[in-house]
Nucleic acid binder design. Sequence first.
DNA 1: TTGTATGCGTTATCAT
DNA 2: ATGATAACGCATACAA
Lengths: 325, 325
Amino acid sequence: MHDVGRIAGVSQVTVSRALSDPSKVSPETLTKVMGAVEATGFVPNAIAGALASRKSRLVSALVPSITNVVYSSMVRAFSERLRAHGYQILLSETGFAPEAEEATVVAHLSRRPDAIMLTGIQHTPQARRLLLAAGIPVVELWDVSDSPIDLCVGFHHVDAARAAAEFARDRGYRVAATVTAADERACRRRTGFAERFTRDTGNPVPDFDTGGAASIAAGRQGLAGLIDRHGIGGGLIYCSSDIIAHGVMIEAQSRGLRIPDELAVIGFGDQEFARHLEPALTTVRIDLAQLGQSAADAVLSRLDGQTPPSPVIDLGFEIVARASA
Amino acid sequence: MHDVGRIAGVSQVTVSRALSDPSKVSPETLTKVMGAVEATGFVPNAIAGALASRKSRLVSALVPSITNVVYSSMVRAFSERLRAHGYQILLSETGFAPEAEEATVVAHLSRRPDAIMLTGIQHTPQARRLLLAAGIPVVELWDVSDSPIDLCVGFHHVDAARAAAEFARDRGYRVAATVTAADERACRRRTGFAERFTRDTGNPVPDFDTGGAASIAAGRQGLAGLIDRHGIGGGLIYCSSDIIAHGVMIEAQSRGLRIPDELAVIGFGDQEFARHLEPALTTVRIDLAQLGQSAADAVLSRLDGQTPPSPVIDLGFEIVARASA
DNA sequence: TTGTATGCGTTATCAT
DNA sequence: ATGATAACGCATACAA
């Protein structure tokens, strides 16, 4: 800035002002400064700016996995809205373990983000402490909590699972099983489904835990395991995600099981492919874009010094009844 | 650090040393400092550290879309390797237009990353200039170039498309069309396929441009458009991605066209679902994890002051012959 | 509207 | 092994 100023015939501060708030300098000096900026290819050092202003214009986002469209869609919506307000997103994967998340939280907080978004409400006590001590807006996404760290935008997983169980019951299914990926929220949904279904039908709901991330292969193994171990030959399979459900459907079809007559399937997430499967997948829709936007809005209002009406926003879910169940 | 030092009974500099290089302080003071750090919940300010050391330990990554598994898989591999070496990733979406990318490049360079990864080799002249002037390792991913900005890791898109055309020819297909998403590289592949196929068979290759991002819906529209506008009733469809191919297959099946007998399909990318489709999708495999890792390794070696053997690394591709063509 | 002086919280360079 | 001091490049308060 010093050099740019010398070329433009002004001081370093004037360059700073011209760049950060053009209305604070006269039109002539603005032109001169911009000319010098062009000529030198000067790109301001945001690190120095952040240190001086104590504002990084950086917002952290922590998600379990970036290759999972569910999370990346939320992040996209979250990022776009924040970018429109001049913030950049520092994104990291945390995996599905709170301990791994904690290390990432520390790494992010050291960059002094102006706000931070986390996925879910399960964090280590130390992570909660650090987050609280950071004194910045914190938004927990993809779940609702009774004791949010700060802000919380999501939906009630157990309610969603119960609604699916009731849907299954109302459709007349009396036998059900679940295929669940290794994810705390997926497990909570699985339990919510099983309890409600058992309460309403009297029948136990066996589970297959894929032990890993959601994939078609995991879904196929899930149905195969259910058939081999529990002798499941029909009824309904409640899956922790659409991907798993896709795998279950493929496995069923390869075994000659007709869907939904011999085996019904319910997914979770309503990804694009769900409606295009044959038969189309019955699933639970979550408005990912809305989730991301609301989280961004909540953060922005806090950054603006406002107190949002409610710290926790429940955006709900919707059962999408299609042909697979 | 000053406060931490006071509690530990040492100076601020000693705290800095204890935290950044424990071997530079005595075991006793290390214990005292760490104790004080624990007690206060101190998280070092990486912004100040970056300003003072002129090293941000931040690496930028720019991809067209984060919801596209192709890109997010590469970013995951790239990030993991770099994180293992103490770097964090500042990730942004650029969309598919070089002009939008340029703005993102400026925003990223202002954060003074230690290196930067870009997707593809098409950038505005101004972006190239800024990147060059930044004086940091730059790696262009997902393509190969004769004139890389610095490093380049990818594969030859036209070659991959030609290989697909030759595969189609060898399988005896004489009629072909393409469905292409709005992406410069996809268009280049489309042209490569068409030219080679026409050269070998004498037949023109009509195209349907989806005009937007790849999706199942776009693939369905693509086949529908091809049938309506060009009277395509059979032959082979070369798609710009597996997702598009999936859509084409669904549309074909909904119209009662048998695959591959009445309509053959070739995808691109070999995503997980490709092998599970019915019939399994013939496609072109790109080793995304390897791409990301190699890019990270190239960057790391440059960061280490070494000169990599070759600035451009061609990782190639592989035709995966399955049942759909 | 513009300039001067000061500080942001570290690391690097010396010195002890 | 430890401490004092000076950058790092900008924004803020204040003065002109």
